[in-house]
Simulated assay, not measured.
Amino acid sequence: MDWIKPCRATGLGSLPYQDELAAIKLIAAAMPHWPHWPQLPAKIPEQGFLVQYVQPLIKLGVLTVQPVKDPVFCRQEADWDMKAANFYEKYLEFIEKQSAATQTFALTGEAFAGMEYFLSNFASYFPQAEGVKGHVSGPLTVGLQIKDERGRACFYDETLRDILIKCLAVEAIFEARRLKTLGLPVMIFIDDPSLFLIGSSSYITLTREVASAALATIIEALHAEDVKVGVHACAGIDWSILFDLPVDVISFDAYHYFTGMALQAERLAGYLSRGGKLAWGLVPTSDEAWQETPDSILARFEQQCTELANRGIDSIVLRQNIIWTPSCGTGALPVPLAEYIYNLIKEIGTINILGD
């Protein structure tokens, strides 16, 4: 039996609420079989994409938090080397399975209040659940936004990149272990939209090899925990980057960037033949959603299936390996729009596209 049934629905993570209960109720209505825990960046900055999973680096002082600015690796501080060494010491404690590492890397506090509320209330709100979904911020996107003391993206510095990747990998492992306590299959998406910058003339020093290696480290760490791993990119990337990685799910914005995926039909066919899944983000996370209905979304999907079939994709195989999602997170949207988007997901998830 496959690990996930065809055409189940889930979400990317963020919602615009400031109340966990409201978020859980929306998720339960739209995604009862594969719910995700909610990130609420509007409630508290620590639940934002950039800082949520680097909390250990902030706690240890490796990252300096500045008012109204992104955190920075301030290596000019007199004790920074000592703080970095302390991080590696804590990381080795984790590798050696010492309980002391839990205090450093555990997903606690307001940054992960949404996950704790989700776990504590899971039985009440998700009686039909077949699995659960988590998410972790991607190393390239975070690494390009967090800078060093000179204002240079930390991803370009080998030492800082190594610290960042190790932190994200351990946080992802802790998340996998927390979600597995529910006794259900787990999948975790690595959200890395900046993958679209690879090959850009503005980022000529950004190599595919380094970005892929960063992702591979986290993917392998999660696979070692026996969870399924997806990578989400909500822009038009070179999808062969992900086809070359051992990912179980490729999550993409099928509303705006379907053409790029269609152009890689041959590689897509190989990916599907290996059991790969596609998180088909066909519900736009923008005002465009107001113009859509379940019927219009499904009509667009049928057009896309026809185009892929014309390019050699087995339509039956494709349909059996789709997960419905919004095209991206909804944390920055107005609440009524986010609710409408989730309702669209709910409705299309009830429509049979398998033809049996």
Rank of each mutant, 00 (worst) to 15 (best):
S273D: 15
P294F: 06
V283S: 01
E288A: 14
R274S: 13
S286L: 00
E292G: 04
A299G: 12
A269D: 13
W280N: 02
G275P: 01
D287R: 15
S273R: 14
S296K: 07
S296E: 08
A299E: 10
G281D: 02
L298A: 09
P294E: 08
T285D: 11
L278M: 03
W280V: 02
R274L: 12
E288C: 08
S273L: 14
W280E: 04
W290R: 13
G276H: 00
L272S: 04
A269V: 04
L298S: 00
L282R: 01
E292L: 14
I297F: 11
A269R: 10
R274H: 14
G276K: 03
Q291V: 13
T293M: 01
E292C: 05
D295M: 04
E288F: 05
G275R: 00
R274T: 13
E292W: 11
P284R: 11
L272V: 00
Q291I: 14
Q291P: 09
L298D: 03
P284D: 03
A299I: 05
Q291L: 15
I297M: 01
L278D: 09
Q291Y: 15
S296W: 08
L272H: 00
T285W: 08
W280S: 05
T293S: 07
L298F: 06
I297P: 07
P294V: 04
P284M: 10
V283E: 10
G275L: 05
D295R: 13
G275W: 04
S273E: 15
L272Y: 02
K277E: 05
W290H: 12
L282D: 07
I297K: 00
D287E: 15
A279R: 06
T293E: 04
G275D: 07
T293I: 11
L298I: 10
G281E: 02
S296R: 12
Y271P: 06
W290Y: 15
S286N: 01
I297V: 06
S286H: 10
K277D: 07
S273W: 10
R274M: 13
E292A: 10
K277F: 09
K277I: 12
K277N: 10
D287N: 15
